[in-house]
Design a binder for these strands. Structure first.
Lengths: 104, 104
DNA sequence: AAATCATATAAGTCTGTGCTTATGTATTTT
DNA sequence: AAAATACATAAGCACAGACTTATATGATTT
C-alpha cells in the first residue's frame, strides 16, 4: 500500500488555503497570489507540491497555467478515510442528506 | 474558522501507522511500539501529537494508558472534506453501498 | 520500602521544509 | 526583434519537527 502524500501536502496552511480557493473555480498562479503575502516562486513551489501529490491539475493556456482541483485527489482522501467509517457515528444522517441533494 | 490540526498530525507516516493500528482496537503505548523501531519517548511524543489534534483519546488504567481513536477527530476530517464533495464524481455509488452495509 | 514497570518531560542534535533572491524559459505584446 | 509577462528552477538560509539519551513521575509488584 503506497503512502498517501496528500497529508504532507495539506499540512501547510498556505497550501490548504490555495486548495480551498481552487474549490471555487480554476485559477492561474498570479491570481492565486492575491491576498497572500507570498513571493511568486513560493506560490509556484506550493503549487508543485499540490500537483505532485495529485491534488491539483494544471492546463497550459499560452503563457498562463490554469490550476484546478483534481477530483482523483479528493477521491483518494475519501478512500483513506473510509477505513475509519466505523468511527463516524451520528454522521450517517448527514451523509444520507448529502446523497439526496446530489440525486436532485 | 479554526485551522485543522489533523493534517500536520497525520502527515507523519509513523503517526498514521499508529492511528491505523488503533483502528483495530484500543491499545497501550508499550503494545503500540511492537513492530516499530522507535524509542519509548518517541512513541510517547507521537501519541501526544495525535491527542492534541483530537484524533485519539486516552484512558488511564493504573500505570497503563489505553489509547483509542477519537470519533470526533474522524468526524472533523469528514467535515473538512465535505467542502470538496462536488469534486467527488463517480463515488456516490460506493457511498450508497457503504450506507446499505451500515444499515444492516 | 525497595525495585520494577509504564509513561511523560527535558534538552540537545540533525534533517526536512518553507522562505527568500537570483536566474532561466517560454509566450505574448509592442 | 526587443521588451514584457507568466511561470519554473536553483541555491542558500532559518526554523520546525522527529529523533535521541537522560531523567522525572506515578502505579504496581515483591
Amino acid at each position: 500500500m503506497s503512502e498517501p502524500e496528500f497529508f504532507k501536502a495539506l499540512a501547510d496552511p498556505t497550501r490548504r488555503a490555495v486548495f480551498e480557493r481552487l474549490a471555487d473555480g480554476e485559477m492561474n498562479a498570479t491570481d492565486l497570489r492575491q491576498g497572500f503575502d507570498l513571493s511568486q516562486p513560493a506560490m509556484s513551489q506550493h503549487l508543485a507540491v499540490l500537483r505532485t501529490a495529485g491534488l491539483i491539475a494544471e492546463q497550459k493556456h499560452g503563457r498562463n497555467v490554469l490550476y484546478r482541483i483534481n477530483p482523483d485527489g479528493v477521491a483518494r482522501i475519501h478512500q483513506w478515510l473510509s477505513r475509519y467509517n466505523a468511527f463516524w457515528p451520528g454522521r450517517v444522517d448527514d451523509l444520507k442528506q448529502l446523497l439526496k441533494e446530489m440525486d436532485q
